[in-house]
Computed example of a mutant assay.
Amino acid sequence: MTVEAVVSHVEALGRTLGGTVDGALLECARAVHRASMADYLARRGDLAAAGAGEPASLFHEAVTGGRRAG
């Protein structure tokens, strides 16, 4: 999540609680969501290929120091 998305979410939450949501805020939220989704979809294949099996092996190495059980 980008800083812009976080700021947008916080602003939207504050304005929702304050009852001041308007069309401009909703359109801004839509634009941030579309950009974020487009970025994710463009990178999804690379993310899946880069992360296949890696988190489990990193966790194993961190916990066991790379030693094999047995």
Results as ranks from 00 to 15, higher is better:
1 M>W: 07
36 S>Y: 00
37 M>R: 06
59 F>G: 08
14 G>N: 14
10 V>S: 11
70 G>D: 04
13 L>P: 01
10 V>T: 14
16 T>M: 12
41 L>C: 00
35 A>T: 06
28 C>R: 11
55 P>F: 12
49 A>M: 11
67 R>S: 11
64 T>I: 00
7 V>S: 08
64 T>F: 02
21 V>E: 05
22 D>E: 15
20 T>S: 12
65 G>R: 01
21 V>Q: 06
42 A>G: 06
22 D>C: 15
6 V>D: 01
13 L>M: 07
59 F>W: 14
8 S>T: 15
15 R>Q: 13
62 A>Q: 06
13 L>N: 04
11 E>W: 01
62 A>V: 03
32 V>C: 06
34 R>T: 07
57 S>A: 15
70 G>F: 03
50 A>M: 13
7 V>T: 10
56 A>D: 07
20 T>Q: 07
3 V>C: 01
16 T>A: 15
7 V>D: 10
63 V>S: 09
20 T>E: 09
9 H>R: 13
16 T>Y: 13
14 G>K: 15
17 L>H: 04
64 T>Q: 01
49 A>L: 14
6 V>I: 05
63 V>A: 10
52 A>H: 10
48 A>I: 02
64 T>E: 00
65 G>C: 00
58 L>S: 07
35 A>I: 00
27 E>H: 11
25 L>F: 04
21 V>T: 08
65 G>F: 00
61 E>D: 12
16 T>K: 10
62 A>C: 04
35 A>K: 06
25 L>G: 03
57 S>D: 11
43 R>L: 06
58 L>R: 14
66 G>E: 04
2 T>I: 01
65 G>E: 01
